[in-house]
Amino acid sequence: MSYVMIENLHKTYGASTVLSTIDMTIEKGEFVTLLGPSGCGKSTILRIIAGLTDATSGTVNIDGIDMQNVQPKNREIGMVFQSYALFPNMTVKENVAFGLKMKKIDPREIDEKVREMLAIVHLSDKGNAYPNELSGGQQQRVALARALIVRPKVLLLDEPLSALDAQIRKKLQSDLRSIQMELGITMILVTHDQEEAMAVSDKIFVMNKGGIAQRGTPTEIYTKPESEFIANFIGHYNVFTRAELEHMVGMKLPSECAKFAIRPEAIYFEAGAKNFHMSGIAIESVMSGNVIRTVFQSGERTFSVEQLHHRGHFVEIGKAYECYVEPEDVIELT
């Protein structure tokens, strides 16, 4: 039996359905991400797991216990929000100690645990500061420490890094993953950032319109998108109809599929024995640090190619190029 089991979960608000037929299993100590665009219902799942929102139907089972009649305060679930939700009238130490005080733990033990937890989140010197004296990243670390100190069975993270700038976000992603591995806590992260999901997760549930569109490891999700939505959402996939692709490669495809996806980094300029061949005129090239993304025009369609940035731009805008892709990198979409 899995540690967290969500079965046949539905949530409606009046006539609008927010979640439909959600089934999930999460193992103990796993880092799972719910990934999807805004409004797809991922935060609602977290709130239902936490007991802050009631499901219309379905069950949530954690560590063998049905959560239907369990109050939020008795669920042993921690939650970290995008807006930190720190108690503004309390110092960092008091914020972190709050959960232990509610459990009526001995004050000396609380002091010791707070010290340990602040060390884990690298905030040992900020114990007496108030939340409004800290940066966004520091506040989120406090929120994390406050949720972790009570050793929850499951920690829910509702877009905790979305409000932070890119550099701090990357650092906290890595910290989050190492803390999760160090403490062995089951974590469920909600995000709309596919890079973040790929970077930290053991397993990803991609959500769309209140349902789960695909589930799998980050590699599975990235390399084998099952639908056009996943291909478009998860990266810069080139998605073609059968007719478009057959026209571009100049041959009939063996598959009966209606749509195909090709990763932009799977298209290159060196010919191989079994390659499909496409030609196009470079119309746009964008350098984003280590990657150069070039858009080619081929007939009515465009496709993009991503290559590692070795020695500056090498594609000349307006010039025709021959591009190649291996047949196994042409992914059939359902």
């Binding site: 936490a50 802050l52 939020p72 921690g78 929000f81 939700a85 959960g99 949720a147 009570v150």
Partner: peptide, 20 residues
């Protein structure tokens, strides 16, 4: 200003009763 609903949610998840 203080995002009151979220503060209450967090306090309850940390083991506080509604009154607390």
């Amino acid at each position: 200003n203080v995002n009151a609903k979220q503060l209450l949610d967090v306090a309850e998840l940390l083991g506080a009763s509604k009154l607390q």
